[in-house]
Amino acid sequence: MNNIMLPGVEVPVDNNTHYSIIAEKIYKKIGKKEILKGVDLKIRYGEIHVIAGHNGAGKTTLFRILAGLLKYDSGKLSVLGFDPNKNQHEISKYLGYVPEDSSPYERLTGFENLRVFALIYSNGDEKIAEKFIKRGAEISELTHEDLSRKAGEYSNGMKKRLLIARAIMHNPKLVLLDEPTNGLDVFSAYKIRKLIKTMSSSGTTFVIATHNMSEAEMLADRITFIAYGTILYSGSVKSAIEDFNSVNLEEAFIKAVGEKYEV
């Protein structure tokens, strides 16, 4: 199957597959700038799907639209069966979201950070919240001592692990991670990738935005290339490398972008 997607080309769809996200011709303008220019995207349940693109490609805007925080201008979008423009609240119940530029509450301890969100996800039910906190603590792989300290004292890697644990402790159906390892050292990035791999085995759909192609290659079940607000390609890592006759994903991405935009 040829998965190369260029603007105006329909995504080949396997009608027997269930998708957690279906986007058709999504357009989004912020101010006078058109950020997304007819995005088509299909993401299957339970996969790790990497959205790879350069800085300013529209990854963050796409994530915010998927989370229902920004409203798309036109097109059709289904996230977990809901339209984010109309049902953000419904989606939020099954969503774990870690924005690229986010931070835990630095004056709260790790446990307190988990507790605030556990109470939100459990709708105030203390018993359920306690379970979420326990699970969050396990996922974060932070020690009890670390979790008892204020998050402001954490390293960047620890903060990121806490944020991810906080986003997935309630076992969401869909997790959006925007540049989860950006700015982290090798060890912290490795731990986070390991965490994502482990969690995805439980059936959660992970959508990860990154501009790091090596990371994309390590993580992705399937990959989507995005450049200048347009989806260029969607398929498996292996097929991306083959389709673009490249030695690795980085080269495939450069070729994909170059074909259209002569970068």
């Binding site: 915010r64 989370a67 229902g68 925080l69 609240h89 939020s92 119940k93 969503l95 979201y97 870690v98 924005p99 530029d101 986010s102 931070s103 835990p104 509450y105 630095e106 969100f117 939100i120 996800y121 709708n123 944020l163 906080r166 986003a167």
Partner: peptide
């Protein structure tokens, strides 16, 4: 500004 708002409003908290 402390970068905690976006995560908060993405939760089911009304």
């Amino acid at each position: 500004e402390r970068k905690t708002l976006e995560t908060l409003i993405s939760t089911p908290a009304p």
